[in-house]
């Protein structure tokens, strides 16, 4: 039998715990709930289960934190000057639109 490294023994133990302890879900099941959780569409019971996993699992906690940060950073990158809603629409564009309407 292949020897397991310390790390893989730890993961195996995590896997067993997440799979067999009541109210626990595996990281893979957690993954399937992420979007519904963030959209506020996860039923109450599943929300409890989701948040419990978040408490015990360092990996999923780090994953979710950096996932949320990714969204914040992308939003912000588009809000900065240059990407912002242009205040000025070129006058020739306005003219072109109005001319196209007459046509």
């Amino acid at each position: 039998m292949a020897r397991r490294s310390t790390k893989s023994i730890r993961n195996w133990a995590r896997g067993v715990a997440y799979r067999y302890v009541p109210m626990m879900i595996t990281c893979q099941e957690f993954e399937d709930f992420v979007i519904a959780y963030l959209e506020g569409e996860l039923p109450r019971r599943q929300t409890v289960v989701f948040e419990l996993h978040l408490k015990v699992c360092r990996e999923c906690r780090d994953y979710l934190t950096s996932y949320k940060r990714t969204i914040e950073v992308s939003k912000r990158a588009f809000q900065e000057p240059g990407q912002q809603i242009p205040d000025e629409v070129p006058e020739d564009l306005v003219r072109a639109i109005l001319a196209a309407r007459q046509a």
Partner: peptide
């Protein structure tokens, strides 16, 4: 991994939107 456990690097530092932008 094969035990359905997530493999996720530790994040010693997570830059804020301010720090990046």
């Amino acid at each position: 991994d094969g035990d359905a456990c997530r493999i996720e690097p530790a994040w010693p530092h997570l830059a804020t939107p301010d720090e990046i932008c």
